[in-house]
Every structure is written in structure tokens, then in C-alpha cells.
Write a protein that binds this DNA or RNA. Sequence first.
DNA 1: AGCGCCGATACGCCGTAGGTATCGTTGCAG
DNA 2: CTGCAACGATACCTACGGCGTATCGGCGCT
Lengths: 283, 283
Amino acid sequence: MELRTLRYFVAVAEELHFGRAATRLHMSQPPLSRAIKQLEADVGALLFARSPAGVTLTPVGTVLLDEARALLDHADRVRVRVSAAAGAATITVGILGDGTDPGVSRLAAAYRRNHPGIDIHIRDTDLTDPTCGLRAGLVDVALTRAPFDETALTVRTLRTDPVGVVLRADDPLARRDRLRLAELSDRRWFQFPQDTDPSWQSYWNGGTPREGPVVRAVQECLQAVLWNGTVGLAPLGHDLPAELAVVPLTDMVPSRVVAVWNEGDTNPLIRSFIEIATAAYRR
Amino acid sequence: MELRTLRYFVAVAEELHFGRAATRLHMSQPPLSRAIKQLEADVGALLFARSPAGVTLTPVGTVLLDEARALLDHADRVRVRVSAAAGAATITVGILGDGTDPGVSRLAAAYRRNHPGIDIHIRDTDLTDPTCGLRAGLVDVALTRAPFDETALTVRTLRTDPVGVVLRADDPLARRDRLRLAELSDRRWFQFPQDTDPSWQSYWNGGTPREGPVVRAVQECLQAVLWNGTVGLAPLGHDLPAELAVVPLTDMVPSRVVAVWNEGDTNPLIRSFIEIATAAYRR
DNA sequence: AGCGCCGATACGCCGTAGGTATCGTTGCAG
DNA sequence: CTGCAACGATACCTACGGCGTATCGGCGCT
């Protein structure tokens, strides 16, 4: 009789419908049916009367529903009390550009739900530091993009995005539905400042050093495309102003959204953040 | 934060020693260490201060210890209340011979611990019915030995025992450390009564029909060996009177201790019994 | 009588819990 | 000061179980 199983049971008992309960639990119906059956074997009594007309709670099920709700509430209170005992703590999260992802806010919400007393400081950095201040000790964990120098860091991939090229909408190549890097070799490209991580710089240049304006932030990038006619690479799936177009690149290794933290960091809050991030990006 | 994890935590907190706690939990130390680490990530705080001098609870750990104990107690009470609501029920268990196994009493104890309100009726049967009255509708579940006619029954193997031959201690063959069936072909063997399950009868005759006295119970078997000089097969590992010896047989397929119930039986008490039996025999 | 709804079953995959072996640190003894 | 023993952490592997997809089966409704 684990808490997870009881949460399943409460969902079914409230919906009185396995399919809907499964949807609510973000799972499919068969494993839910099985879990309930196992719970019935565990407590030694039928909890639901299944009939084609519908699902009903048995008397024992009614009792368990009350008990399970109380127990789950109790468990929630345990979490709160332990968090309170842990006291006010802070973690600082570095984020690349102006929000690598729409998922970041979801993640922050999920984390705050798990650890209500913990302050989350977000440190938004420009594109010149792929570790978002982690190396400099300014943040505890970074949500960013690979690749970069990983020595003394631990990296977990959260998602991979195909990469496209950003062009002016009136660029002749902008109408193409896909492109290869070679077709852009005569263009001007972005540069990051001199001291930027080399593999990071190299990645966004498509593997070969390029000439072009120095940029530091996403907006600078886009402006450079608009005004200087340079090209730039960007992961697909972001909104762009109408004057810009993005064309998928077929021969570019996809961009990885990653979480990074210091190798050997034992802070449970950081570990927890990583786990929640992994789960949040899984769907 | 599942109940299982909290039980681990309480064990470590009480022992203040990972190795001893693991022993108490019937597991090994590494997965316990890992589980605690995951719990720490889950609640977002270190629970133990590990130092070579020993393990100590952190302040947060102290709080969680109280809370976890309370929650686990609550969970136990939930079980009790649900069992009470299920009311008095009875399951009847058929057992072969005079207790197939020393594990049976352990099993009954474990079952009673899980389902305090449930009466367990034990029906002890002789060797002539391998289903122990299940076919006749006299019991809900049987702890017995395979093989037998399994139509409309579901069988789960709990354990397998090598089989030996039972001989008088003064029998010339009794000194051998192992035997083959062929070396016993000129002997008299047991018979079960006419209407006994054929594959059951055949199994205990080593696959070929034999001549010999009809027996119904284990004691009759042993007496027949003593007084008639017949041979009989028996799973190894049982105590025998000093006048009898058992010699392992090399070419006999091992005997399986099984739990059997009616195919499609949906009674959760029976399902529960099966699960508890499986777990009880696992170690 | 046929179709549709819905829970149960079958089956394959993968994540994770648990096992064994080993390491790293630290305190202690010779 | 240099093994050595104790003990938790880590690495790696295996196996079981939880979840998904596909499908079945039973009852109700038109």
C-alpha cells in the first residue's frame, strides 16, 4: 500500500470512471486498472463494483476513500513541515538568453510546489556564457544548451531540438524548406566575443570559423540578421518577428537543452531541481 | 516520498548505521544508501550527517523521523480500519499431506498480519488429491505439489525441490550418494488409489506404472517402506526417522511446490494470499 | 442484430530497485 | 607513519514491475 497507489485509487473513486481517472493521472487506462486490482489484493477486499452501467464504490471502498484522503493529506503536511524545518534556503538558476524555453516557468512552478520555502533566484544571462555563470560560481545550476567545455561539470540532456538558420524573410534562401550548411558558406555569420567557450562558438558557426558581427544576446542576433544580412543558427520552434524566417538545416547536429551543475555538488536542493527538471521536460 | 522509502529512513535513523539498517530491512547496503540519497533530494535537505565516526541525524532529519513515524502509524491504522470495514471473512486453504512445508506456518502468520480480521481455515488432506479439495470446492486455494490436471485451475510455482528415493536404512542402495530411476525398476513401488489424478500418480512412480501397495498418506508411505521394503519418492529436505534413508535421484524432474486456485477467481483475499505466499517463499 | 462504450487482458519495452564488487576516506594500531 | 579495518559511496549488472499499445469481451443502446 504505497502513496502512489492510493493517489490512483482516489482519482478513480472521484471520477468513478477508469478512463477519465487515467487521463487525470496522465497515464493510460490499463496500468491503472491493474494498480487498482493490486490494491484490492493488498487490502483484501473489492473496492469498486464494476458493471457496464458504471463503476461504484463498495462499502469498503468508501471507507478507504476517506482514509486514503486523510493519509495523503497527512503526507502532504509532512512535506510542508519538513520543508519548514529545512528553513529558508535559496538556489540560483542560470538561464541562457531570455528564457531558453517556455518550459522554464512550468519547471519553476513545479519546483516551488515541491519546495514551498525555497527561494528560486533566476539569473538570466546573455549568449556569451553557455554555463550561465555556473563556472563563475554565480549560480548553482544552469538551464542552457550544449555543447561547451564540460570539465568539472555534470550535464543532463533534457531535450533536443533541430536547428535552423535565421534569415531575413526577403532573403532568396528563405523560401527553401530546408538548407545545408554549405549553401551558407559565403555569408556573414555571428561571432561571439573573443573569450567565449570555443566549442560553443564553434557549434553556432556550424563547425567552421566564420566572419561577422559580434553579438551577445538573442536580440542582437536578430537585429544583426535584419540590418546586416548576416545569418544565424537557432533551434526551431521559437516565435520570430514576421521579418525573419527560419529554415531547417539538414546537416546540423541538433541542439540539446541541458541542465548543468557542478560535478560532486551534494546539495539535495540541486539534486531535486535536476530530477524535477528531467520530469518536467519528459512530456 | 513513498511509504517504503520512509520505512527505510526510519530504519537508518534508528540504527544510525547504514549496514545494520540494511540487514534489518533484509536488503544490502548500497540500494539503501541510494534510496536515502533520493529521499534527501526529494525533501530537499540532508537528513543524515555522514562522518567516518558515525551517522547522525541532522535537525531536518530529526523532524522527518517524528513525522515519518507518525505517517507510517497512520498508514497502519488505515489498513486496520479498512480490514475492519471488510468485515469477518474466511478463506480455506488446502494443504497436502501433513504440512507440505515448514514455510506454511510462516505464511499463515504473514497473512494474518496483513489481514487481521480474516479467518484462515486450514484443510489438511492426504496424498490422494493433489488439489487438496480445490476441485471439490472444499477449499479456496491449495498449497500443494505439481504435477496434476490443471484444467480450469491456475498454478503458481513457489519453489522446486530435488526428489530423492526413500529406502530402508539397511537397504544396500541406501549407502549410495545418488541413484538413477532405472536402478529401482525391479522394486515394489507405491500406488495411489484408482481414481487418483493420473499425472500425479505417474509422477510419483517415476514416469512408468509400478506394482506395489496402495497408500494414502505420508505416514502410510513410510510404513510401507519400513515393512514392505517398497521404495517411494519424496522431495529432499524433510526429516525422516532414523530407520529410513533418502538418496537423491539424478534423473527425476524436481518437485514443484505450488499454489493453486480456481481460474478466474476474483476474490481479492485469494489474490492477496497468492502474493503473500509468493513473497514468503522467495527467500 | 450490430455497434459503441468501457474495463480487462496480452504482450513488449524500459526504467528502476536491488544485488555484487570495488573504491575512497578516515580512524586506529603496530 | 604506514598498513589495516570499518563504512558509506560508487560502478555496473540483472531482473522485476510499471507503463504503453493493441486487442478482447461483455453489456447496453439504437
